[in-house]
């Protein structure tokens, strides 16, 4: 409950505050968003599976975002940034889809 409220409040803050994203952070923002989506969907699924653990969620969220951004940063330095961000998006996208499917099965029983 609090979690949903916090999420909604965060979205509203992000929309209202209009922070200017620094130029160097630009390429990592989409990747960070995908990683965050993955962690959020994982947490929701764990909640529905009744195995949610706040500590695991926090750690997995921070680690996911940082590792994804770091991989893209590394790729940029090596000149394969586009390919590595594709790899990150593919892996995280598959996980998001899988978790979303599990959530759907939980909610609709189908």
């Amino acid at each position: 409950m609090y979690a949903l409220l916090a999420l909604a409040a965060g979205v509203v803050i992000g929309l209202l505050v209009h922070p200017t994203v620094p130029e160097w952070l630009g390429p990592y923002l989409p990747i960070a968003v995908v990683a965050a989506l993955d962690a959020v969907f994982g947490g929701l699924r764990a909640r529905l599976d009744n195995i949610f653990d706040a500590k695991v969620f926090v750690v997995s969220f921070i680690a996911n975002v940082l590792v994804a951004a770091f991989i893209v940063f590394l790729g940029d330095q090596l000149g394969v940034g586009a390919q590595l961000s594709t790899a990150v998006v593919v892996v995280l996208g598959i996980r998001i889809f899988g978790n979303a499917a599990a959530i759907r099965r939980h909610i609709f029983k189908a």
Binding site: L7, G10, V21
Partner: peptide, 11 residues
């Protein structure tokens, strides 16, 4: 963390 995630999505 969820608040931060929300801010991220909003931004």
């Amino acid at each position: 963390v969820l608040l931060v995630a929300g801010v991220l999505f909003g931004i």
